[in-house]
Nucleic acid binder design. Structure first.
Lengths: 211, 211
DNA sequence: TTTTGTGAACTAGTTCACAGCT
DNA sequence: AGCTGTGAACTAGTTCACAAAA
């Protein structure tokens, strides 16, 4: 199952949860496709990874997501498991992003080497300095399994080395530039600058076109 | 030229700028490929969009990026143009992300409806309340062309409508959920929750595997 | 009849492999 | 020799189109 597929599934599942809260009982692949500007066949193929849990002529029963028939990879058990992984973040800016907690991720530790930023308050967690001994201890104690890196580029590699040494196997990185990790560690980088540049590029093309 | 390609180019160009500052004169596609864990042919194909500015037997002259031979789409002119688009952001958390300013993007206006957050300080800009009249005026005056949305999901669509009404044609969205924009507006969404879930998913698979 | 599930067709993206410069 | 630029081969991802189920 490709990463593109799992990303889309995350989006569908969140939407389906919202629909259930709104009292909607069934939804068709066509309706979902319009919502997400995707092809209906794409949605059906994606959802089919969970087994055949659509109903022909009707659509998908929204509540099947909560107690689905299939075995191991069913969405709810995924969601339940996910809740048990608390991420740790370095860098203050992202700690209070409301989406994390809403979706069941809780920031359970926070590290930053700049004392000035450390003293600034965060609703999520107290902020500690990054030293290998303390971070390792905290990662163990709190069952942290994902690290979120949000420090300036020059110190990012150092911080990654630290969390890897603490036994973390998954890293979400917001700092620009390349990071090296061992092959058993999953690194996912989100480069905000690249996102902005991609929009700039779109604007540049649009301005240049004759219409 | 696909968006995947432009995104990779952003990354290469930043790296090449860093290399120039470090005094490196030439670099081969092979060396870049190792840096970014990509295929060398991929890098060559990507850079070839700027015309043939590699040198066979040598590699790429790093400074050719600063004053390249080709016409309109040369990297530097792109970069120069990009600097003239100041983004506006809504939601405090991201305004002080250091990467934006470093790469020539300057947050020039900041809106948030929660008075509590508005009174909290930001290095980037004073924070104003979101009302259609003020935002339109400010967007015009400061030549803002990109909006960054970082407000909770329920108010996101409202804020997008506002910036679209103010004439913004490119939106970078960090709020979860779907947003509707008119076809002439480019919307790019970065869903941090999906990124985290994708890592969770990786961990779930890794734990389940027998080795 | 409506809508799923899915093989087949198609499209986009990547890698190979080698001719052609320097 | 070394390394780019690129057509050809390959791989991944998407959409079509239709049989089968409710």
């Amino acid at each position: 199952m490709s990463e593109l597929t799992t990303n889309r599934l995350s989006v569908y599942l969140r939407c389906l949860n919202a629909l259930e809260d709104a009292g909607v009982r069934t939804i068709s692949s066509q309706a979902l496709a319009e919502q997400f500007h995707l092809n209906a066949a794409q949605i059906r193929k994606d959802l089919a990874y969970f087994g055949e849990f659509g109903v022909r002529g009707v659509g998908y029963y929204v509540r099947d997501l909560e107690a689905p028939p299939a075995a191991d990879s069913r969405p709810r058990s995924q969601a339940a498991r996910r809740r048990s992984w608390a991420p740790a973040t370095s860098g203050l800016a992202l700690a209070d992003y409301p989406g994390f907690r809403q979706e069941g991720f809780e920031i359970s530790a926070l590290f930053d080497n700049a004392a000035a930023r450390r003293s600034a308050s965060s609703r999520a967690a107290a902020c500690r300095s990054t030293t290998s001994t303390t971070s390792k201890k905290i990662a163990r104690r709190d069952g942290i399994s994902i690290a979120v890196i949000a420090v300036p580029a020059p110190s990012a590699q150092h911080v990654v080395n630290l969390v890897v040494a603490a036994g973390i196997k998954a890293v979400l990185n917001f700092s620009p530039g390349t990071l090296q990790v061992p092959p058993d560690v999953k690194l996912k980088s989100v480069d905000l600058t690249v996102s902005l540049e991609s929009l700039s590029f779109f604007l540049a093309q649009g301005d240049g076109e004759d219409r």
